[in-house]
Simulated scan of single mutants.
Amino acid sequence: MTEKKTTTKAQQRATNAYRQKNKERTQYLNQRSATKRFITANATDEDIILVKEWLSERQKAEPTEITAEAIQQYINSLSQSELQWLELEAKKRRLHLRDQEDKQRLQEEKRTVNSEIKMDLPEPE
């Protein structure tokens, strides 16, 4: 039997205090999540086309330039848990890339070994 996880009263108070203190950030994250849920779960092909058009219009109106200052501002705006999540995602990405490199290296070694074996075998008569 699985136990239902419950949030403690102290955790609930802390969450509410954070939300009160960071109303704009909380609202932004809620809207972003709702948008993602809508696009991934409910949007029709027409909706997707519209969203792409809106993004294209916005990008034309406001070309985005990523600067070191913009990145630093973004990092400073993140909560501790968001930073930890980003660090974990970056670590998973690095591990994935390392795995891909290892696979490529192994495939290359196999090709080399196979070609050496073929060179060592006598020609069939």
Rank of each mutant, 00 (worst) to 15 (best):
A41Q: 15
E82G: 02
I75W: 10
R37M: 12
E87N: 14
E123T: 14
T15W: 01
W54Y: 09
L106E: 11
E123Y: 08
N22S: 10
Q84W: 10
T40M: 05
E3A: 14
M119Y: 04
L29N: 04
T40K: 13
L121K: 00
E24S: 12
I48L: 04
P63D: 01
L78D: 00
K103L: 15
T44Q: 00
K60Y: 05
R58A: 13
S77G: 03
L86R: 01
K36M: 15
A68C: 06
Q27K: 11
K118W: 03
Q72G: 03
L88K: 15
W54N: 14
I75R: 09
K103H: 10
A61W: 06
L29H: 09
E108V: 11
K91V: 13
E24N: 12
L106Q: 15
R58F: 12
T35I: 11
Y28R: 06
K21T: 13
K91E: 07
K5D: 01
P122I: 01
A90R: 08
P63N: 01
Q80S: 11
I117W: 03
N76M: 09
Q104C: 12
E69D: 00
R25F: 12
W54Q: 12
E57H: 14
Q72M: 06
A68D: 05
N30R: 12
A90T: 10
R105C: 12
E125N: 11
K103D: 11
I75V: 15
A41H: 10
S56T: 04
S33M: 08
Q59Y: 12
A10R: 00
R111A: 13
M1V: 11
W54E: 06
Q107N: 11
A14I: 01
T64S: 10
Q12P: 02
I75Y: 10
T15I: 03
T40V: 07
D99W: 08
N42G: 10
S56P: 02
H96D: 10
E116D: 07
R13L: 02
E3Q: 11
E69M: 07
Q12E: 03
K9C: 04
N16L: 11
L83I: 08
S56C: 05
K60D: 09
E69C: 02
S33K: 13
K4I: 15
V113N: 05
L88I: 12
T26Y: 09
E108Y: 06
S81C: 07
R98N: 13
R105W: 07
N22W: 07
P63K: 03
R111I: 08
I39P: 01
W85V: 14
N42K: 15
R94F: 09
S79R: 08
K110Y: 11
K103Y: 08
Q100T: 06
R32K: 13
N76Q: 08
Y18Q: 04
T44W: 00
D102M: 15
S77I: 04
L95C: 13
E116P: 05
I117Y: 02
Y74Q: 00
E87I: 15
E87K: 15
I49T: 09
N42I: 11
Y18W: 06
D45I: 02
E116C: 11
K4W: 06
E53D: 00
P63V: 00
